[in-house]
């Protein structure tokens, strides 16, 4: 399990990095945490000519709250995100999701940007950022563009990022985020890839009517998906067992999961329903709590 040889670069500025990316084109790839790329290289599932190590770009490792927007640098380590009091305060969905990612040791290395661009269909960060309606800032030597995360995922491991581009920042508008939140996941063991995961944000008014929300499900398709139809059924209603069941059912019906060694297609469909329901219920209870009413989740 030794990789094929490649050229290794360690740029010290963003400018240098972007120029390298332009020069390397298709044959170049960035390495940050390396938690996905190193195994792929070692197992020779990929042959890259150029590996560009961006761990020196400290200026991309940040968490900032500016004018109602939570800004996370691409190189921000998952562990920093996990422990950040700012994030816990303004985007607690992320704080709840990150501990599901691998283990402390891998989170010390893995980056937020790396996870988003790697776009594993079961990954927690892509799913959370989708639920949070985040925007990805993508830079190349020639231009900077903004892509809503909702439009970012194309298919398995494939995103709207060209080989010459780099994700430098993620922005989440947090002022208008619904107050109720929940991230739930089902996996075989602690730290494993999720079989199914769901993220829910909900706002309710004083008498428990759902006024706004976002619901996203992961592990059920090639990319994480927004369960809009299920959410629509909830809007304007108080949450009852029957409504919850209906929403869960609709959410599952809109997925198209594959079966694999750990979960058959039928089982995944079932889990999609179960965990969508669990996410909605938890987010609902938290929303009521925030308003001072309702029971503890």
């Amino acid at each position: 399990m030794k990789p094929a040889s490649f050229n290794y670069y360690r740029p010290s500025t963003l400018e240098e990095t972007l120029q390298l990316l332009l020069d390397c084109g298709d044959e170049g790839k960035l390495i940050a945490g390396g938690q996905s790329l190193i195994p792929i290289l070692n197992m020779r599932l990929s042959s890259l000519e150029h590996v560009i190590d961006i761990n020196g770009l400290r200026e991309l490792d940040f968490i900032r709250l500016e004018e109602g927007i939570l800004k996370i640098g691409g190189l921000c380590r998952q562990r920093s995100l996990e422990k950040s009091p700012t994030v816990k305060e303004v985007a607690p969905l992320l704080s709840e999701a990150v501990p599901f990612i691998g283990h402390v040791q891998t989170r010390n290395r893995g980056t937020v940007g790396g996870s988003l661009v790697h776009a594993d269909p079961t990954a927690e960060i892509p799913l959370s950022l989708l639920a949070l309606d985040a925007t990805a800032i993508i830079q190349s030597a020639e231009e900077t563009r903004e892509v809503p995360v909702q439009d970012f995922f194309i298919t398995y491991l494939t995103t709207d990022i060209a080989p010459t581009e780099m994700l430098t920042e993620i922005q989440i508008p947090v002022d208008t985020l619904p107050k109720g939140y929940a991230f739930v996941e089902f996996s075989r063991r602690h730290g494993d890839f999720a079989l199914v995961a769901a993220a829910c944000l909900l706002d309710t008014d004083e008498d428990g009517t759902i006024t706004a929300g976002r619901l996203a499900i992961g592990g059920v398709d090639a990319v994480p998906m927004i369960a809009q139809e299920a959410m629509d059924v909830l809007l304007g209603e108080k949450l009852t067992d029957a409504l919850l069941e209906e929403a869960g059912q609709i959410a599952a019906e809109n997925t198209d999961p594959e079966g694999d060694l750990h979960a058959s297609r039928e089982y995944r469909l079932h889990l999609a329903k179960v965990f969508t329901k669990r996410a909605i219920r938890k987010a609902y209870e938290r929303s009521l709590q925030k308003l001072g009413g309702g029971t503890q989740p």
């Binding site: 599932l45 269909p121 298919t155 398995y156 491991l157 890839f193 090639a222 594959e258 694999d260 060694l261």
Partner: peptide, 12 residues
């Protein structure tokens, strides 16, 4: 190694 995604990727 890739059995998790094989079915989906093949379809794709």
């Amino acid at each position: 190694i890739g059995q998790r995604m094989l079915g989906g990727v093949a379809k794709l």
